[in-house]
Nucleic acid binder design. Sequence first.
DNA 1: TACTAAATGCAAATAAGTCGCATTTGCATT
DNA 2: AATGCAAATGCGACTTATTTGCATTTAGTA
Lengths: 143, 143
Amino acid sequence: MKDMEKKEETGYPQGIKWTKQRKNVYAVLQEATEPLTAVQIYHLSEKLAEGGEYALSTIYRILAAFEEKGLVSKTTWMGDGTVVYELNRGEHTHYAVCLECHKRIALQSCPFAHIHLDQETDGFTVTGHKLELYGYCKDCRKE
Amino acid sequence: MKDMEKKEETGYPQGIKWTKQRKNVYAVLQEATEPLTAVQIYHLSEKLAEGGEYALSTIYRILAAFEEKGLVSKTTWMGDGTVVYELNRGEHTHYAVCLECHKRIALQSCPFAHIHLDQETDGFTVTGHKLELYGYCKDCRKE
DNA sequence: TACTAAATGCAAATAAGTCGCATTTGCATT
DNA sequence: AATGCAAATGCGACTTATTTGCATTTAGTA
């Protein structure tokens, strides 16, 4: 287990205090396959630790701190406004949301990958975008 | 003012009770040039009427009823999750949001107007989409 | 004009997130 | 290894946005 020891000693972005709560939240975000709400992160973090030794307000503060440091980005599901957090991994993902079962399906690629959005609006410099598709997944489709 | 009388008698989508509160909310939404929050609609409706004869909960219920009937659509500003309502007028509008001053600029056209999004995801039938652009408006742009 | 289901007002309840303050804890230093 | 302090945490109170129960009112029909 020397590898794990090594990982314990290093591997965390520096510049902030790495408390056990922060390490757990960070681990939860690394394991996540899609963006999570603060409450989901709260429960998953507690599961990672043994006891119920977390305050929800701490989770909110940790997420705010991570966002400040650029580790995490905070977004909202456009459909219902749910606020979610995810690790900044460089790429971005869009989702298709089923209006029937509310399942979210990640798009394999961004439709704007090769489209220039800049000229859309006069004088506005576009630096990013958010997109959400709506419709029916193959299980819920009406014929 | 015969025109107004006429308008009073007709012109409302049928199938629901047209109370004075609902008429006012409907009028507010018709006059709106962009989506409004429930609280904004609440204040504007009270201004339309004379007295403070509205309950905020009623506004929420009216908006929910309108949404049910397909008169109104409820959306959220993706950036901050603010929930807003607007009349369903057939077309849809996207916005570019300035990260500095938070101004919203309506796009003249939808970038997807002539793009097929259907094939993006296997088996998913796309019926709608939401898009928000981020960046800097011409007043806030950094050189 | 009377009747009834639906709509409203009000106040209390819920949900998501924030904040102040006393206590604890990384972590840099001795 | 022990110390010190700023930063982080826990806890509870608070805010803001929205929902809900219930008694009362009202639109639209019979």
